[in-house]
């Protein structure tokens, strides 16, 4: 089943009176059963892209096909095949939570005999059974988000679009939503989600597209995106300099190890003799003995753990005793910084 559920080609959206394209000639496809993340800062064009795919925004040019339906030519048909969870609650405030689900199913032509049972299953699954009769005005943001996901699932869409599903939620509510999304992923529900949280994208997405200024800068699995970064993995080592040991020599030797792209000292402070000397992270030890300690960070291309043994040998050869080892893995945030020169927020 390797067919595309979402197919976007050269999509452009320019809003009236705007000098730039909100979405600037982007193309991507989402496979059946895949969780696809659109990752980028606010204003990158993520919501506009989802707006086009869900028939609510008319693009300036380009094409978008969702579940085999051209959303521009047959928006009505497309609406029946997609589910949408918006960034902000748009629940029907005149209806109870259960009725929000039931009427949604009615709009989508689900037979009356099935609506109630489906609503009850979803309310149970999303931990909302006790709130079934409550009106949306009396519930928390996290619950709204869950109701909107449950509502979107009532008509069993081919693809579910979630716009910033956890923005503004507290950590517990966020984890709950993540767990529900993981369950959907296990059930092979195709999901397109936008987020400005790189951690969320890494947690949930099978593939992520990094978006900025309306353009897609890179599309791949989060792992591959991270691996593509030159020298982004780090290995941090702390050591005590024993009698006869030399920090300068070990420094040079580390530089010579295969895969090491750069070596730098960490938290160095100028000493009275004018030489730079490292300070241990532990403030208790940051005193007179600190000249006997060294902390270095190696920037590595490839697998950082493979370097632990050779680095330890190098330290031992130069009479330094290792006190701490820390592996630093690059994140999607680093990928974003690498691609745009800016941080995500």
């Amino acid at each position: 089943m390797n067919r595309s559920v979402v197919e976007v080609r050269d999509l452009v959206k320019r809003y009236p009176r705007s000098p730039v394209n909100a979405v600037d000639a982007i193309s991507f496809s989402v496979e059946h059963g895949e969780v696809f993340g659109l990752l980028g800062p606010n204003g990158a064009g993520k919501t506009t892209t989802v707006g086009v795919l869900t028939t609510r925004i008319r693009p300036t040019s380009g094409s978008a096909v969702v579940a085999g339906v051209d959303v521009l030519r047959q928006p009505t048909l497309a609406c029946g095949r997609l589910g949408v969870v918006p960034q902000r609650s748009n629940l029907d405030r005149s209806l109870s939570i259960r009725n929000n689900l039931i009427f949604h199913a009615a709009y989508h032509g689900i037979p009356a005999s099935e609506r109630g049972a489906r609503a009850d299953v979803l309310l149970e699954q999303f931990g909302l059974r006790e709130r079934a009769k409550t009106k949306p005005d009396f519930i928390s943001g996290g619950q709204s988000q869950r109701i909107m996901i449950a509502r979107a699932l009532m008509h069993e869409p081919h693809v579910l679009f979630l716009d910033e599903p956890t923005t503004g939620l507290d950590p517990a509510a966020r984890l709950f939503v993540w767990d529900r999304l993981r369950e959907l992923r296990q059930r092979r529900v195709t999901i397109v989600l936008t987020t400005h949280d790189m951690h969320e994208a890494a947690q949930l997405a099978d593939r992520a597209a990094i978006m900025d200024h309306g353009k897609l800068l890179a599309i791949d699995t989060p792992q591959a995106l991270v691996r593509s970064l030159p020298g982004a993995a780090t290995l941090e080592l702390a050591a005590e300099i024993l009698d006869g040991g030399s920090a300068d020599e070990v420094f040079a030797a580390l530089r010579g190890l295969p895969g090491v792209e750069a070596v730098e000292r960490v938290q160095a402070q100028p000493q009275t003799n004018g030489r730079l000397s490292p300070v241990l992270a532990d403030p208790e030890q940051a005193g007179s003995e600190t000249t006997h300690a060294l902390r270095v960070r190696l920037y590595v291309s490839g697998d950082a753990p493979m370097l632990v043994a050779p680095a330890a040998s190098t330290f031992a050869e130069h009479r330094l005793a290792i006190t701490d080892v820390k592996l630093g893995n690059p994140t999607l945030e680093d990928v974003f910084i690498h691609l745009t020169g800016r941080t995500l927020r």
């Binding site: 579940a67 048909l77 609406c79 209806l95 709009y107 989508h108 032509g109 037979p111 069993e156 059930r187």
Partner: peptide, 26 residues
């Protein structure tokens, strides 16, 4: 997960479902 997909013919159904929603709220 596409056992029940709304068909184009159900536009009338959707129309009356929305009307029913409004009447229910009234």
């Amino acid at each position: 997960m596409n056992t029940t997909v709304a068909t184009p013919q159900s536009e009338t159904g959707a129309f009356f479902a929305i009307l029913r929603r409004d009447l229910y709220v009234t």
